[in-house]
Design a protein around this nucleic acid. Structure first.
Length: 441
DNA sequence: TTTTGAGTTGTTCGA
DNA sequence: GTCGAACAACTCAAA
């Protein structure tokens, strides 16, 4: 008798609504075994806050699945092959993963399954337009955002998908439990799919119209805060695009979604850019990596540089697993341009701790700041932490929240460095000198 | 093939 | 205080 049972292997699509892979797995009344693999490669490099959010997302998904989610620790190729065999499934269905690690992992899994004569089927992607599909007329990928955005905007993307009843089952097979949350000592966003939709609805009602101006002020709740849900898949961007109008706020927000898609596309075409400079000529940039550099990195990471806006951002990250985007740019620029450290050091720190940490957006955001990525990036673009602070946190309330020793500081002095580890004017000049060395002038 | 216009998010200087 | 130019040169995309 032919088997009619599928495994749906969840990865970064932790939702039950609007899920093409789930619909495919459950077609024609097939039974579907929902699975998540706690891959050491995913767990090991994650900090406590990031892990806690992942575990909560899994618990919430499990609830949505009526408690049927099968969780296993281990190497995906071995785990999935064994699960598929034990569960008597004849196919494994996934949402495609376009990242460099995901690509390798899935190739290994597909190989193992092939030897067992079990199908491995990819449906959909975490993006509105799958990475690799927006190309120039000559067939090559875009390397500049604006033309990519124009082309991407004309691409049809499917409407959110109605998921009818799926026959989720949990056969009698081995499973592990979802680990208890590490101690995080802070409030995290609600990790449920429902909370993600609620947040989006509220943002559409109350936030989107003023998004263009308010999104830059770190003290205000002017951003959508949807990034963790886009990272883990509680929401799919096609839902957001379907709900967006054409006014200024929605257009700005749509562009931010397009940046996410652009960076995924760039990483898809240049998987090595997760670690290496996209512009290889920037390998010549002189950087500091000695003991002093490592000490300075620690001061940056712990939020003790003496630059209030930098320290506020780094402490917000440590405390909550999230940092306002404007402050991500400021802190990143400080690491690269004021401390002359490799962007990879900062990118790794962010990825370990951000609950929304997405490889493509994170690495290429850093590369943009470092001037090694897709942007023409004039080398003289160096963020001045004091000016940025005064401009975007004018009354200093963001600083007051995260740097308590400055809570009562005067508004005229709160942006000024206090016992700074470096002098911005000096380091700016040094950064320009180093960047000039690359271009040979 | 050649040409042309443009390129997320900035800062400083001097008029 | 405000505003425009300069900061360099290169690559990309499209006509």
């Amino acid at each position: 008798m032919a088997s009619s049972r599928s495994i749906l292997w969840f990865r970064r699509d932790l939702r039950v609504a609007d899920h093409p892979a789930a619909v495919h797995a459950g077609r024609d009344g097939r039974e579907v075994v929902p699975v998540f693999v706690l891959d050491p490669a995913l767990v090991r490099p994650s900090g406590a806050v990031r892990l806690a959010f992942m575990y909560r997302s899994l618990r919430s998904l499990n609830e949505s699945l009526g408690g049927k989610l099968v969780v296993r620790h281990g190497q995906p190729d071995a785990v999935i092959a064994k699960l598929a065999a034990d569960a008597h499934a004849d196919e494994v269905v996934v949402t495609r993963d376009h990242g460099p690690y995901g690509h390798r992992r899935d190739a290994a899994v597909a190989e193992r399954l092939r030897s067992l004569e079990i199908a491995f089927v990819g449906k959909g992607s975490p993006y509105a337009v799958a990475p690799g599909t927006v190309v120039k007329d000559d067939g090559n990928p875009y390397a500049v955002f604006t033309p990519f955005f124009r082309a991407w905007s004309t691409r049809p993307h499917p409407d959110p998908l109605d998921v009818a009843d799926i026959d989720w089952i949990r056969p009698r097979i081995d499973h592990d439990s979802i680990p208890a949350d590490p101690d995080v000592g802070c409030a995290l966003p609600d990790a449920s799919e429902h909370a993600a939709h609620e947040l989006w609805d509220t943002f559409l009602r109350e936030g989107i119209d003023r998004y263009t101006s308010r999104r830059n002020a770190p003290a205000e709740s002017g951003t959508s805060r949807l990034s963790p849900y886009l990272r883990w898949g509680q929401l799919h961007p096609r839902q957001l695009l379907a709900d967006l109008g054409d006014a200024a706020g929605p257009s700005t927000f749509r562009k931010e979604l397009a940046w996410r898609e652009f960076y995924a596309d760039v990483l898809h075409h240049h998987p090595e850019s997760a670690r290496e400079n996209l512009q290889r000529k920037m390998d010549q940039l002189p950087l500091d990596t000695d003991a002093t550099a490592r000490r300075r990195f620690d001061r940056w990471a712990t939020g003790t540089t003496g630059y209030p806006i930098v320290d506020a951002g780094m402490r917000q990250l440590l405390a909550t697993g999230w940092m306002h985007n404007r402050v991500r740019m400021i802190t990143a620029s400080f690491l690269v341009k004021d401390l002359h450290l490799p962007w990879q050091w900062g990118a790794r720190h962010f990825m370990q701790r951000l609950v929304d940490g997405d490889l493509a957006s994170n690495q290429h955001g850093w590369q943009w700041v470092a001037g090694t990525g897709t942007d023409a990036a004039p080398f003289f673009r160096v963020f001045n932490p004091t000016l940025q602070s005064a401009k975007f946190d004018p009354d200093g309330s963001y600083i007051r929240q995260w740097v308590p020793e400055l809570a009562d500081a005067d508004v005229d002095t709160i942006h000024q460095p206090q016992a700074p580890i470096v002098d911005h004017a000096v380091e700016r000049a040094d950064a320009l000198r180093r960047y000039r060395a690359v271009t040979g002038r």
